[in-house]
């Protein structure tokens, strides 16, 4: 039985359907990603899983229980990092953890040692007594993760854990999340960074317009839809049509986004056929989730 199971899950806001009949089954210990542009319905899905939003239709169970019926016992084993920080700004860094532990009815001594452990784990032990206004955005995000771990959750929900952070802060959070993965904590992560999904997720669901377009292992999805490699050609403004004709003559699948042509399953031999095509730059590389993402929904999916 899955940790989270959804069937025909729906959520309306007035006449607008934000989540439109999705199904998924998340296994114990896996990291499952919801990948999609803004407005795809990722946050709405996460909020339904955490029992914050009642669903409009369909089935949703967490740990085999209906979240709308048994929220208290389910939430006891959940750790949530919301998209928008909702840390307690009236409290210091360490107080945030201790106060949160109390909501879970954790003994004060246990809470204190756990809080100190988590602050160390997230490299915040130098900031214990600081006010939230005194620490950076990346640190606040790490504190939000520490807070979500205070009850030793079986399932973590991470809604865009690294959006808006600088690369260094992002890498630090990735490293922490990977080490949580090793501890076999089930994780649900939403993101619109392909790289993040590729690095962390065992499986991803690609969402758009409230629907899941595709689901699977990132590498397999990419391989099945795009192929192993991609040739990326940045074309100049002149002779674009002539250049496109030569690309077409290769007989490979390709797609154009902006002034860049992506040739899927682009093999090495093709490069020689493209000599003198009048490109600004050419890149022969491994196919990524980003290629899949671009291809799946074309221009409309990208915000």
């Amino acid at each position: 039985m899955g940790v989270v199971e959804a069937r025909q899950l729906e959520r309306d806001f007035g006449a607008f359907r934000a989540v439109d009949g999705i199904a998924f089954n998340i296994e114990e210990g896996e990291c499952y990603g919801f990948l999609g542009p803004n407005g795809a319905g990722k946050t709405t899905t996460v909020r339904m899983i955490q029992g914050l939003l009642p669903r409009t239709g369909g089935d949703l169970t967490v740990f085999g229980k209906d979240i709308d019926r048994e929220p208290v016992s389910i939430k006891a084993d959940l750790g949530v990092v919301s998209q928008e920080n909702n840390l307690d700004r009236d409290l210091t860094v360490r107080q945030n953890l201790l106060t949160y532990a109390r909501y879970f009815d954790i003994e004060p001594e246990v809470a204190q040692s756990r809080a100190d452990e988590l602050l160390k784990f997230l490299h915040l032990d130098g900031k214990k007594g600081d006010k939230l206004s005194a620490i950076s955005g990346g640190m606040q995000r790490r504190l939000a993760i520490a807070r979500a771990l205070i009850n030793g959750p079986r399932l973590m929900l991470l809604d865009e854990p690294t959006t808006g952070l600088d690369p260094q802060a992002r890498h630090m959070i990735w490293a922490r999340l990977r080490s949580l993965k090793k501890q076999k904590i089930t994780m649900i992560l939403t993101t619109h960074y392909m790289e993040e999904a590729e690095r962390l997720c065992d499986r991803v669901a690609i969402m758009n317009g409230g629907k899941i377009l595709m689901e699977g292992k990132p590498s397999e999805l990419v391989k099945d839809v795009i192929g192993e490699e991609v040739i990326e050609l940045n074309l100049g403004d002149e002779n674009r049509q002539a250049a496109l004709n030569r690309v077409r003559a290769l007989g490979a699948a390709y797609e154009m986004h902006g002034d860049t042509v992506y040739i899927y399953n682009g093999r090495h031999e093709m490069l020689s056929a493209l000599v003198g095509i009048g490109h600004r730059s050419v890149l022969h590389r491994k196919a990524t989730l980003e290629d899949l993402f671009l291809k799946l929904a074309g221009r409309t999916l990208v915000d």
Partner: peptide
């Protein structure tokens, strides 16, 4: 703050 607390029991 309420939203944060609603993720607890």
């Amino acid at each position: 703050v309420y939203e944060g607390i609603l993720a607890t029991p």
